[in-house]
Amino acid sequence: MNQAAPQNMPSSAKLIQLMGTVSLVCGLLIVSTHQATLAPIRANQETIMRQTVAELLPGANKQITYGVDGSGNLTVLQGVDAPGPKLFAGYDASGKLIGVVLEGADRGYADVIRAMYSYSLEKQAIIGFKVTELKETPGLGDKIVTDPKFLANFKELDASLKNRIVTVKSGTKKNKWEIDAISGATISSRAVGRLIDKSAKEMIPIIQRNRQRIEGGN
């Protein structure tokens, strides 16, 4: 047996002291980086959100972000990082409401697909669509971002909620509330249909209920 080993062992208190000091320094480094990057991270997220809203609602000069609480009431938000469902209203230069941008998410082939779409209260239709997060197979599922024929579905997709928004087999679209799937990217196309349907069913009644307030921009 090695008798010398226990003597060379530093005491537990010394080891704890050492680890504690290192942890303290590490903690300070992390907290200071977090503090320093908090503002740019928020600014980045807000810029991206504003750009997406502007893209989905061409001509929108002014934007207001509303948060939706559990009972469907709206509150004006200053940033975009508040938790919970949100809607982004876009107004033209004269202050007239162009439309509202909503968020949706559903399971695709590889992972959850997140997207934003614009809704026109006047037309009761979806007038724009953009994928914001996607991990689908390159060359197949990721066509939902670029395929012009697929994106043409969202020029005026009926969202009056009289009928469910559904994705139909490629080339079989007959009604205004149907989305024509991309051949070879059926699972991702269906996920888009589901994410819009789910989010529209939840959010459009809230928008209709608060229509006056959103149109007034307050």
Binding site: M19, V22, C26, L29, T33, T37, P40, I41, I48
Partner: peptide
């Protein structure tokens, strides 16, 4: 100790990348 130090810098780089490009 090494892992603690490495994890600290990784957390920092995580924040920095998020601040530079989402």
């Amino acid at each position: 100790t090494y892992i603690l130090i490495i994890a600290t810098f990784v957390t920092m780089v995580d924040y920095i990348i998020k601040a530079v490009s989402v």
